[in-house]
Design a protein around this nucleic acid. Structure first.
Lengths: 121, 121
DNA sequence: AGCAGGTGCTTGGTAGACTTAGCATCGTGA
DNA sequence: TCACGATGCTAAGTCTACCAAGCACCTGCT
């Protein structure tokens, strides 16, 4: 494990590790208990808590469930979910693309009309 | 990671890929365009779309942003967010009504076309 | 003393996420 | 005809998330 890398990573994700460790302490679980419950190895969990590695979202989710906290809380800590997503306005393009009642051709037609109306984007 | 979980996820890998590919087609972007915008290499995006690899949540988020769709949509696809917490789908009608780039007449036209499409299928 | 079992940490290795370089094919223009 | 640029894909390598085995330390029990 390269040291300069560890420092760079630590800056960005150290917060998650400390947070997990504090939550684990509050839940009065040992490292091994939490690791088993979250189905990760205990050395790996140790490394995560010390900020040496950046866990995948799946591992984060498993840890969150083992700790009985919401996965979104952890996601937010590493910027996986937008903090300002509640005030995000629905995009017409996205809404059209996701609509299950439209065929692909109909989507293309609507999108083309919409782009024509809206101008650029 | 637990085996049955891995399989469940693996089954849906292809689904994300196909979904991304179809969304890219609707957005009329080439593989390279989307790859550049999402800051991943184009061969890797190609492999994701063909279901060869399971992209990390960060890559998924970058792709979602490049496609102007919400990251939660993709997360839900691979089971990263709980199904009961699943966001409600953006409504085309609402999105059109809220769009600030359209005039009232244009909105009415679009809505009329949309209702015609959605109703008859 | 000496074991038994708990704590967290180190080491060494594997698999797969991700990259750079480059190939094959197509359409378009000179 | 011969580039040319754009398309998606293959090959081969690097990096790192993650695991199994085992170490060092502590506390309690006999």
């Amino acid at each position: 494990m390269p040291i300069e890398m560890a420092n760079r990573v630590k800056d960005s994700i150290g917060g998650v590790g400390e947070f997990i460790r504090s939550q684990r302490a509050l839940a009065r679980m040992s490292l091994r208990q939490l690791a088993d419950k979250a189905k990760v190895s205990n050395p790996y969990l140790s490394q995560i808590e010390r900020g040496l590695y950046r866990p995948s979202a799946e591992v984060l989710k498993a840890i969150a469930e083992a700790l009985n906290i919401s996965a979104e809380t952890l996601y937010a800590r590493i910027g996986l979910v937008d903090p300002d997503r509640e005030e995000r306005r629905p995009s017409v393009e996205e809404a059209i693309r996701l609509d299950s009642k439209l065929t692909t051709d109909q989507k293309e037609t609507l999108l083309s009309v919409y782009r024509n109306f809206a101008g650029s984007s």
